[in-house]
């Protein structure tokens, strides 16, 4: 499978524009197998578009995406689906199916892949929910009946239930109070470690980035401007990253505001 030298995900020259707006302008990034990569960046810097490209939800205008050393653009539809079968994703706002109860949400992928019967799915859901600290009694509720933190945890349970090799987290702590944010981070670290998965998170929450990341990369105006260890965030010596990490108004990154 993935040899020592081959990164799990390799992006080269990834570019994407929407009309005249250039969102990705040549993103190069290597994500090591079994490690947790945090992609930082301000709003509108292209973080979400990057992972949507890797997931195949958006087709890039140029550049290559390799997963396990294979260019995904050259895969057949079936092979591409097989790659996606091993990827999990936690969406920013959960994106839970509000017409389905929690247990069906959690086991959706297993049911879709026919790896489990509907009868067994309830037990499996209870098991996965326990891993994210939720009681089995949540199983029969609908997503609209859950608090924001619980929705996030159900979303996490859904992302890990099929035991993926790669998991994406889109702003996992946004919209949560700091304590719940830390709880979610802890669950993410535990789950990723238990699965031995490669994790890619996008965030602008520095505390969260240091907690869940091994590696970090900063994206600005559609380009990766820095990569390094997540532990060094805040004292990287890179003026842009440090400004971002400390949340300073003055620095190389100028917000485009009109007075």
């Amino acid at each position: 499978m993935s040899g020592a030298g081959v990164p799990k995900i390799r992006l080269r020259g990834l570019a994407k524009s929407f009309g005249p707006k250039v969102v990705l302008d040549g993103v190069d990034l290597d994500i090591r197998a079994g490690h947790s990569m945090v992609i930082l960046g301000g709003s509108g810097s292209g973080k979400s578009v990057t992972i949507k490209c890797i997931l195949g939800l958006i087709t890039p205008d140029a550049g290559t995406i390799e997963i396990d050393g294979r260019d995904v653009a050259k895969l057949s539809r079936r092979e591409r689906e097989a790659v996606n079968d091993r990827i999990g994703m936690l969406f920013q706002n959960g994106a839970l199916f509000d017409s389905l109860p929690v247990w069906e949400n959690v086991c959706f992928k297993l049911l879709a892949q026919r790896r489990i019967t509907r009868r067994a799915a309830r037990d499996k859901a209870a098991e996965v929910l326990a891993q994210v600290g939720l009681a089995a009694s949540v199983s029969d509720l609908y997503p609209s009946e859950l608090s924001g933190g619980m929705q996030k945890r159900v979303g996490l349970a859904r992302a890990i239930a099929a035991e993926p090799d790669i998991i994406f987290f889109d702003e996992p702590t946004t919209g949560l109070d700091p304590i719940m944010g830390a709880v979610i981070d802890g669950l993410i670290v535990d789950c990723v470690k238990r699965l031995g998965a490669t994790a890619v998170s996008i965030t602008h929450d520095m505390a969260s980035a240091r907690r869940i990341g091994d590696d970090a990369a900063m994206i600005h105006r559609g380009k990766i401007v820095w990569t390094g260890a997540a532990a060094t965030l805040g004292e990287t010596g890179n003026a842009m990253v440090d400004q971002f990490a400390r949340g300073e108004r003055e620095g190389p990154i100028q917000m485009e505001l009109r007075k």
């Binding site: 997931l55 996606n84 706002n93 839970l96 959706f108």
Partner: peptide, 20 residues
């Protein structure tokens, strides 16, 4: 309305990531 809401709340993208 139902499918539109699923679109704007990422539920359609979520289906794609869930082998569906």
């Amino acid at each position: 309305a139902e499918i539109g809401t699923m679109r704007v709340t990422d539920q359609i993208d979520a289906l794609n990531t869930l082998s569906t």
